[in-house]
Design a protein around this nucleic acid. Sequence first.
DNA 1: TCTCGCTGGATTGTACGCAATTCGTGGTGA
DNA 2: TCACCACGAATTGCGTACAATCCAGCGAGA
Lengths: 234, 234
Amino acid sequence: MTEAKGNTRTAYEQIRQAIVEGRYLPGQRLIEQRIAKEFELSRTPVRESLRMLEAEGLVHSEPNRGAVVRSVSVEELADLYALRALLESFAAELAAARITDEDLARIDEGIALFEESIGIAAGGTLEGVRALSEANRLIHGAIIHAARHERLAQLLARTVDVPLVFQAFRQFDRSEMERSHLFHRLIRDAIAAHEGARAARLMSEHVLQGRDVLIARIQAHPQGAEHLFASRPT
Amino acid sequence: MTEAKGNTRTAYEQIRQAIVEGRYLPGQRLIEQRIAKEFELSRTPVRESLRMLEAEGLVHSEPNRGAVVRSVSVEELADLYALRALLESFAAELAAARITDEDLARIDEGIALFEESIGIAAGGTLEGVRALSEANRLIHGAIIHAARHERLAQLLARTVDVPLVFQAFRQFDRSEMERSHLFHRLIRDAIAAHEGARAARLMSEHVLQGRDVLIARIQAHPQGAEHLFASRPT
DNA sequence: TCTCGCTGGATTGTACGCAATTCGTGGTGA
DNA sequence: TCACCACGAATTGCGTACAATCCAGCGAGA
């Protein structure tokens, strides 16, 4: 009440963001009462949000036992990225066939923003990581939008925007950001030239490189990434 | 109350089945009060079910305006099958690498059941179509299970089990059933031989043939399939 | 000591009521 | 005749109360 006219939508988004950014850790119980108090709402919108997040796969819940943040093993993480590579390269291929000038302009905007953000994010601040992640989201979102495939967009939103992706950006060093930037531009050009197969291959490579960086970091500094995973599997 | 201890789960499943089987038509408004009365519950579990179905993509809803059954255009239908082909062929490829004897036995069971069902379903009865659809679900489900990729399974459940797929089987004639049966066996053998690329190609072809049959039927008898689509786009 | 069952607190599941919003409908004025 | 506005029915959004369920901890009996 002290805040804006808080409705279910904002509850959903706040809980989601908390999970994605890792403020709610994998394995942690999500108790309706507590969350409701935290956001100054009643349990009703919180319950609905949790149900949506469950259908989305971000939380796991069992009848009469409530919801917990879902955890991901390293193996699942690798599989998840393989899936994402498949879906995003499909999107890139469709985009190459269906792109409009407007879509292309949106991609270019995202790319420009990504370039700007590299400087900020190289500092390693949360703010910088957020800016980079947001620019990345814009680029990939614009490509998916250009693919004109609503269901694909829906699935990707749930496959990409997962706790680990946000964490992944924290692990990036400057050269990796630059490499992502390069791939974004290559993909953009392939799409603009209507070269679907190339766009798809580049996108797949781009995503898999992100995966490899993330997994290498996890194995190099397991203590730094352990908060990604639950102590007990859920 | 008169019924079994009706909880949210059953409400969710009943509404879902009504949509998938076409008892709730695309474009139809889903009014909480009416559904609640229909299932003899309060609005609360109905609301939660609708939210889950929304996250799943089966219904569309806007704030303060409620939920409607989502409709699908022929173009979206084609895209949907392309997506399904992509995901299922990926599943087949993974399955070829990860298959166990147990999984293979499950696939074989499904194939045997499918063969039995062809005779029944050729009659064109709803019962026969249900049996065939169920056998088909078992086969594809066993392959997806063999792929050991939870998120992929989740996405496929929501991409495959869509109103249109159930309707599709009604459109099959005997030779098409036989062809599906043939492809099931070819896919099974490729998976058993750990030939991932072949399994993926066969699966893709299998799904796309299903698509072509369905679309051809729709265009040949548009009056028979019009109930698949809403009068107004949603 | 180990197992079993009981009990109380914590939490989820469901019903219900009221406020807020939407949308159709009819009336009013130009 | 037409545009506009206001009212009211229908519906959704949300809070709250209470029932159902789960689970940890404890005590009794073997």
